[in-house]
Computed example of a mutant assay.
Amino acid sequence: MAGSTVPSKVQESPEGDDVARRLLGSAAQLAYDPATEVDWDTPLDKDFHGASPEWCSLYGTAYWGELTEAQRKELTRQEAASVASTGIWFEMILQQMVLRDIYMKNPAGAEFQWALTEIAEECRHSIMFARGAQKLGAPHYRPRRAVMELGRAFKTLAFGEAAYAAILVAEEVLDVMQRDWMRDERVVPFVRTINNIHVVEESRHMKFARDETLKRLEGAGWARRQINAFVVAVASYFIVTSMVNPKVYRRAGLDRKRALAAAKANEHHKSMMRSSCSGLMDFLASARLLTKPALAFYKRANLI
C-alpha cells in the first residue's frame, strides 16, 4: 500500500509519544477485566433483548410487525452475537497490523508500550465477545469465506494510514451501536456490561487510530491519498456488511429468504447507520479520504 512508505521521523515522533503517554495513563486508571467484571454465571434471561431493537436489521419492516416478542428478542440476541463475532474477526486483523507496525520501534518508547497495551485490551475484548456470543446461545458466526480471505490479504498488505483508518472505521461503527445498547434497560444486563467495557476502552483505541491516520498522511501526495482512500473504503464495506450474518434469521426461527429481502430494503436501518457515522465521515473528509471512488463504497454500505 502507498501508506507503507512512512518517514522514520514519523515513526518515532515526540508528538506521537505524547498521545501514547496520555493513553497509557488512561489505561492505568481505567481498565477492566471482563473475566471478573461480567456476570458469566447467571443463566441467560430470555425476557431481554440482546441489543436495542431499533438497531435490529428488521426493525420497522412489515416482517418485524409480524414477529412475536419472543422472536424479536431472539433475533436481537442472535444479531448481537453476530456483531460480536465480526468484532473478533476484525480485532484479530487489527492486532496483527499493529504488531507489524511497531516491529522496528524502540520498546522503551511510549508508542511501542501503548501499542502492546492496546493489543492486550483487544485480546481481552475478543475473549469477552466469544463468551458473550456463547452465552447468548449463538453458533460461531463468521464472514463469508471470500471475505475472510480478503481480510487475510488486508492484514498482510495494509500499512500506515490504510491500516489505521480502517481500524478507526470498524471501531467507530461498533462504538455508536454499543453506546445505545449499554444504556438500554431492555438489553440483557451482561451484554450491557460487555458494551460498556468495550466503549470505554475503545475510546482510547479510536483516539490513537485518528492520531496515527493524520500523522501518516502528513505530506502525502494525491496518488497516495487516492489509493489509500479506496483501500479503506473497500475494507470498511466488507466489515460493515459482514456484521449481521444471514444465518441469524434461520437461527431465530425466521424465513431466511424473506428476512434477507426485508433487511436489504429496510430504510430505517440504513438511516440509523448513516446518522451514527456522520462524525466519522466528517473526520475522513477532513483527512481528504472521501474520494469519489471511496464514496461509492461508503454509500453501498449505507455509511453516508
Rank of each mutant, 00 (worst) to 15 (best):
R72S: 02
P139I: 11
I93G: 05
E91C: 09
G160K: 01
A51R: 14
P143T: 06
A70C: 07
E122I: 10
L260S: 06
R22Y: 05
Q96R: 15
D180F: 15
D282M: 12
R274T: 00
A2P: 14
E122W: 10
V38E: 00
M272I: 08
A285N: 09
E218P: 12
A262G: 07
V38I: 12
R142A: 12
L280S: 01
E66I: 07
Q134Y: 13
W40C: 09
R224K: 14
M128Y: 03
V234W: 02
W40G: 09
L99D: 01
H140A: 13
A138C: 03
E122M: 10
G221T: 04
T76W: 03
E122Q: 11
P189Y: 08
T76K: 05
R250K: 14
R288H: 11
F283S: 03
P43T: 07
D255E: 04
L168M: 10
R256A: 11
I102K: 07
E118K: 10
M272L: 12
T156E: 10
E121W: 01
E66K: 14
P143D: 00
V200R: 08
K105V: 02
T61Q: 01
L75Q: 00
R183S: 11
T61F: 02
I127D: 11
V200A: 08
A235W: 03
L75G: 00
V248M: 02
T42G: 07
I119Y: 00
Y59T: 03
A51P: 10
P246F: 01
A233Q: 05
M128K: 05
V176T: 13
F112M: 05
G16F: 02
A35K: 12
M273R: 15
A162I: 02
M148V: 12
L157Y: 11
H49C: 12
C277R: 10
R22L: 12
R131E: 04
G137W: 09
V188R: 11
V6N: 05
E267M: 13
S278V: 12
N196S: 12
S286P: 07
M92T: 15
Y32F: 15
I304F: 03
V234F: 04
P53M: 00
Q113F: 03
S271Y: 06
H49A: 13
Q134V: 14
K257C: 04
E202T: 09
V19W: 08
D18W: 14
P43D: 04
Q96N: 11
A287I: 06
M281C: 02
C277K: 06
K270M: 08
P107I: 07
S242F: 07
A233V: 05
W89Y: 14
D175F: 15
G50S: 06
W40L: 06
E171D: 11
R152W: 07
N228F: 04
R179L: 05
T36M: 01
A235I: 02
R152S: 10
A262Q: 13
S8F: 11
R288C: 00
L295G: 13
T61G: 06
W89S: 13
L174M: 13
I239C: 08
S286Q: 14
N228Y: 01
Y63E: 10
A220C: 11
T86A: 13
K135H: 05
R77V: 10
A296T: 06
A28G: 15
G50C: 07
R256W: 00
Q226S: 10
V98I: 11
G60S: 02
K247Y: 04
L150C: 03
L136Q: 08
A287G: 06
